[in-house]
């Protein structure tokens, strides 16, 4: 009997390792998420991206590690002071992670939002010459994310930012953009209520909404 219990236990163990509940995976993710939270400089974000990349290499059945590697690289791009070439290299690498995850796991609202975020980075690296043709591409990515998940707070707040930029450019009122920012705030609160601090699913971006709402006042 004990033998069978053991086999059963080992069997369960075997299932667990290939499952998202793999404690080693969760632990590794949590460690990198903590580092991501603390990251300040381009170098920090590059290190965090490397960390997530190691997890992505080992756990190819998970899309989140590539997702966070991409997110860290987009952040590195926004922090970079080395000019357009380095910024573009970070965004390019971030998009590679997103594409890899989409190819293996299909599109979802989070990945599309992150793709839009990377494109937004490219746009803001040279708004003069990229603004015109890229703004519709960026908004297209957020639009698609919202059509897949209308409750996604990150897609909502970034769409709001784009709307605000467009409104400022054309000298229009910020009402629509600010309304969307408010909506995203509610969505962030809803998300916070549904999930816990310990979850490794995406929960970031609330500060963007807060900042926008302050701007709107």
């Amino acid at each position: 009997m004990k033998k069978y219990t053991l086999i059963f236990a080992l069997f369960l163990f075997g299932i667990c390792t290939s499952n998202a509940n793999d404690p080693a995976y969760i632990k590794a993710m949590a460690k990198q998420l903590e580092a991501l939270e603390k990251a300040q400089t381009t170098t920090d974000f590059q290190e965090v991206a490397n960390g997530f990349n190691r997890i992505a290499e080992k756990n190819s059945e998970e899309w989140l590690a590539d997702y966070y590697a991409g997110l860290a690289l987009v952040n590195a791009g926004f922090r970079s002071q080395e000019g357009i070439k380095e910024k573009d290299a970070f965004y390019h690498e971030a998009k590679n992670h997103v594409e890899k995850a989409i190819k293996a796991h299909g599109e979802n609202a989070e990945l599309l939002t992150l793709k839009g975020y990377a494109l937004m980075g490219e746009l803001s690296a040279d708004p003069g010459s990229r603004g015109q043709h890229m703004s519709s591409v960026v908004m297209g990515a957020f639009g698609k994310a919202l059509s897949m998940d209308p409750e996604n707070p990150r897609a909502m707040v970034m769409m709001a930012q784009m709307e605000l930029g467009m409104a400022q450019f054309f000298g229009q009122g910020p009402e629509k953009a600010c309304g969307m920012a408010q909506k995203s705030m509610q969505l962030f609160e809803k998300e916070a209520a549904k999930t816990s601090e310990k979850d490794i699913s995406p929960r970031w971006g609330k500060d963007m909404a807060e900042q926008m709402i302050t701007q709107c006042k």
Partner: peptide, 8 residues
């Protein structure tokens, strides 16, 4: 390879 052990 195939571990979380590493650094930058």
């Amino acid at each position: 390879q195939n571990t979380y052990d590493g650094t930058s």
